[in-house]
Design a protein around this nucleic acid. Structure first.
Lengths: 219, 219
DNA sequence: GAAAGAAATTAGATTTGTCTAAAATAATTT
DNA sequence: AAATTATTTTAGACAAATCTAATTTCTTTC
């Protein structure tokens, strides 16, 4: 199936906002796309009709699996073009975004695959973001500080910020180790503490200091 | 100023049809763009308002100088992308047209210039058509048989098909030599003879045989 | 748990590019 | 030069994507 540039922009924006926080709202999306909430609602209905979105009015929305695939295809194109612009056309990494926004809507999939081959199948774009392959798979190996992990995003602990016995003692007591599945449920502004959940266990809160010592890989 | 893809498609189509025959009609343009004459009229009015077209209703239309510049910019982008697709991405020369039709509407002029540099300023696209430079200038050195010269297109005689004394005698008598400015005013279907005009002199007709012996360069 | 406030949605209008059907103009034929 | 035919244009409608203003639904506060 084929989509308009406008539809693709909505899908991509929803995808990115959902990465940062699984609970995307109509207003957030409107702000992101520099449009009005009413326009967003119109498009949500259209995307639902095309089965790209799970959406019930007043109840919020998430991308369907099909929607996610479309989003990944657009992200793939965007990042491949960014790589091309910087690597081949000698653009600065800060000059490429606007141009890539246009190029990502070129529809030919043959073009994308030939471009990918020409660039020798790069795995990351000039900003370090991973480039999805034809099937939407990508290396999600950019580790981020737990403080920066979006709410409700499942991740895996992959590194700690120090090897001090004090930290290790606290980690052991909290049942956190390398490989632990982790998820942030809430962020408290007052002291920047986080409510987290390990696997399916009951949630508990950790301090800003501990969170900053933990590095995770989004799944 | 910025134009929509639709406007650009009209400008480009008018440009190409005007190359083939200076008298482009509403119906021809509609056929070329696979749309209806009424839609063409609508767009003609819009392009006139934007000063890209000389147009009076029922009286035909031609591109203004500004319109020609826009057209050349689009042709430049189209042919540069075609060159890129064939030379770098290993497309076949017959596969590139549709993709280039999409790519030619990407607006960034920085992109075009960087692409031109990356490709090392090619002068001709994979089909042998000349690529206009930033200022719209291009080598128009594809010589065509006088028989194929569009009506009302000014051209210059650049070669003859044989060196026989019979031909040279006729050419001398007709005042035609290399460098003569020439223009076809009418084509007669009956015997394929042509009415031609040399510079500002009075028009006269020549036979199919003579026309076929003359090669010209459109100006 | 009712009222106030915030967020989301609907209703109706606008713009762009297109269409069909009808009318106006130009070109051709007799 | 009048009549026929072909071309071009207008008038009015429609779909896509957007907007403003009004309304509905949800959330929060008291």
């Amino acid at each position: 199936m084929n989509f308009t540039s406008s539809e693709e922009n909505y899908i991509k924006a929803i995808y990115h906002l959902q990465q940062a926080d699984a609970n995307v709202t109509t207003n957030e999306l409107a702000a992101e796309l520099q449009t009005k909430p009413a326009s967003v609602t119109d498009m949500l209905k259209k995307l639902k009709a095309k089965k790209l979105l799970n959406y019930e009015r007043y109840q919020g929305f998430t991308l369907s699996n099909q929607g996610k695939q479309i989003a990944l295809g657009i992200v793939r194109k965007h990042r491949l073009w960014e790589f091309f612009l910087v690597d081949k056309l000698k653009f600065g990494w800060d000059e490429v975004h606007a141009v890539a926004e246009e190029l990502e809507h070129i529809s030919s999939s043959l073009l994308v695959e030939r471009l990918d081959a020409f660039l020798e199948h790069p795995k990351f774009d000039p900003h370090g973001d991973p480039i999805p392959d034809v099937h939407g798979k990508m290396e999600s190996n950019r580790q981020v500080n737990l403080i920066d992990l979006p709410i409700n995003k499942k991740a895996e602990v992959c590194a700690v910020g120090s090897q001090s016995t004090e930290l290790l003692e606290l980690l052991k007591h909290s049942n956190i180790s390398i490989g632990t599945k982790i998820e942030v449920k809430k962020k408290f502004t007052f002291d920047h503490s986080l409510e987290i959940k390990l696997g399916n266990k009951v949630a508990f809160t950790i301090s800003q200091q501990l969170a900053q010592a933990l590095f995770v890989k989004p799944l």
